[in-house]
């Protein structure tokens, strides 16, 4: 395996999280009223940052979740 999906997921959600948090902070009365009075961009952004942090931390703490499958080469049946 060449790359770790956790880093890509963490990265994508970090970028999305930042975009949404900024959008949420800039949301005006109209956007907030549309979303039932909830700053939904802000909260979704925060949620995505938390998910991003979990994936990036997981990757850092257990970098080799994927073992070398050297004894399990499937061959070409």
């Amino acid at each position: 395996m060449l790359f770790d999906i956790r880093r890509i997921l963490g990265g994508l959600f970090a970028v999305y999280g930042v975009i949404l948090v900024v959008a949420g902070l800039l949301d005006g009365a109209e956007e907030i009223a549309k979303a039932e009075g909830v700053r939904i961009n802000l909260w979704t952004g925060v949620g995505m940052l938390v998910i991003a942090a979990i994936f990036l931390l997981w990757e850092r703490l257990r970098p080799k979740d994927v073992p070398d499958p050297s004894d399990e080469t499937s061959g070409d049946a």
């Binding site: 949404l20 949420g24 956007e31 979704t44």
Partner: peptide, 10 residues
């Protein structure tokens, strides 16, 4: 009905 731009894009 509910989503403002941003979350709507997601």
């Amino acid at each position: 009905e509910f989503l403002p731009n941003g979350v709507l894009g997601v």
